[in-house]
Amino acid sequence: MIEIRDLHKSFGSHQVLRGVDLLVEDGQSMVVIGGSGSGKSVLMKHIIGLLKPDKGSVLVDGTDITRLDAKHLYEVRKKFGMLFQGAALFDSMAVWENVSFALLRSGMRASEARQVAIEKLRLVGLTGIEDLMPSELSGGMRKRVGLARAIAHQPQILLYDEPTTGIDPIMGDVINDLIIKMREDLLVTSVAITHDMHSAYKIADRIAFLYEGRIVETGTPEGIRNTTNPLTKQFITGSSQGPIKIEGINA
């Protein structure tokens, strides 16, 4: 279970998070939606302890990870797998070494780790690419390799940073199906951030709308679709007209 309480974060004078409260139950698929610059990525980086908040706490299975020292934080991180927006594959290593990176680091023999990598790659629908370098892969393949890497050490929580951004719509849907499959097969808790509403409706069983550094509304996909909140409504319908003002544009 992930519990975020009153999370604040500023960069210089720029306040990004202004008191985020969010609860993600075990096995739940939470999707945080929000516009560009709404603080979604910053929120996600707090969940896995890549950033330290100015105020507030992030409880992962009851442990406040914002107060942990480096050593214990790395232990908690083993519960997590994260798929980055640009996949963030290590471009100095072959695909299989990327996938089994955490396993190799924890001392697994190379031959065994390679087998695990091949198996995880098959799980995301990729075969015969284990010896390629990341630069030889297409965007969609990179994301799937990134996903294979995120699940290789059998995490309990998967984080997805804009899983469908930067790839074509069909590949986007392949990723959506994979996210659902991961949850059903591996029984993981997942948190995704996105501004792709099609993806959000498909993969979420809870959706939270982040606006100006706070969660404005949380609900089921159906509930969000039929929202009466004017902010959420404008965002999910993708309208330039409404209470959300874009800087420099007079709507």
């Binding site: 896995i48 994260m82 980055f84 963030a88 594959l89 290590f90 955490a102 890497r149 050490h153 984080l159």
Partner: peptide
């Protein structure tokens, strides 16, 4: 390209 963040998430 977030590879350093990725290292962190892989407990390295």
């Amino acid at each position: 390209t977030e590879q350093i963040d990725a290292l962190e998430t892989l407990a390295t």
